[in-house]
Design a protein around this nucleic acid. Structure first.
Lengths: 165, 165
DNA sequence: GTTATTGCAAATGATTTGCACAAGG
DNA sequence: CCTTGTGCAAATCATTTGCAATAAC
């Protein structure tokens, strides 16, 4: 876990008078151990091993705290569960490309995009706070070569691709 | 209801071998009677008067059909219900600005934005299909004058502003 | 007459919450 | 101690679904 995250977290805990518990430590560690997106359920599975008992309720409650502390962002990828993104402290306005075919999610930033949308927002009489661009696309690799490494990897790991109700 | 919508709908009904029922007619009429966004529940209330009986299930089922027929689009405005947008036949890639303060939703298009994102998508190895930009912003009017006509109107009509769980 | 459609009520599934017990400071 | 945090199970809430009754074609 990054020092910036640690510092911000300590500050948040102090300001809000929160307590340090084993569950929270474990959840926070799991959240920031990689910088991939995850769902609450995926996090729960990472954190609730046979040895350590952590309930879903606590996972959800801790996630809310981290979002409130601005250490984590909620994003909507079009499925029916919230996706959390631990990887944006140094990327204030990042956007997502979701592949309809292979499920890959690509994160990107673009200054030109940001200034374009900021200008539009002000023109409309608002002050921009946050933006998210979601691009849905198809995979050229899959179309041209009939296969895509990501799709194969996803199937092997049983990862959810897109679970629309 | 617009002739294009009617034609597309007729075509869809024919192709899929669907039947014309009183419920569907009523729902479709309600959907396209204005070009405002709505939730399934709002539509249900518009359509289920004392005289005519229409169940939520049928409303949901018809909404799915209309989305499948590409006559309606589902959008996510950050609350916990799907919002439907009947007003996009002539606006393929429209985007939304949601005001955190006054709840106003402004729809807009921008060709520059579209070509920018299309270029980025292709560079990443995908073919763009659909995009949605959601900008969250604060209301300058409210900040500068202490009030915003939209907020007042929304409160009077009891309209949902942002219902985050 | 078939086959699609409806309404109802029950099911689903992610998330939240009430509450009694446990644990941090 | 006193208050915050936890786990559990029950509650929510939008949406979906099974099924028997009904209505298109």
């Amino acid at each position: 876990m990054d020092a910036t995250v640690q510092a911000r977290l300590d500050d948040f805990i102090r300001r809000k008078g929160l307590r340090r518990t084993a569950q929270r430590e474990r959840i926070v560690a799991a959240v920031f151990s990689k910088d991939e997106h995850f769902s609450a359920e995926e996090l729960y599975e990472r954190v609730c091993t046979s040895a350590t008992n952590t309930s879903r309720a606590t996972v959800y409650r801790t996630l809310s705290l981290l979002v409130e502390a601005a250490l984590l962002r909620e994003i909507d990828l079009g499925d029916d569960q919230t996706t959390y993104d631990p990887n944006f402290l140094d990327k204030p306005a990042h956007n997502h490309l979701v592949c309809i075919d292979c499920g890959r999610v690509v994160e990107f930033e673009d200054l030109q995009l940001d200034s374009l949308t900021a200008g539009m927002t002000r023109q409309l009489g608002f002050e921009p706070i946050r933006q998210s661009l979601k691009i849905e696309a198809t995979c050229e690799q899959l179309r041209n070569y009939g296969r895509c490494p990501n799709l194969i990897a996803a199937r092997l790991s049983g990862k959810r691709l897109r679970k629309k109700r």
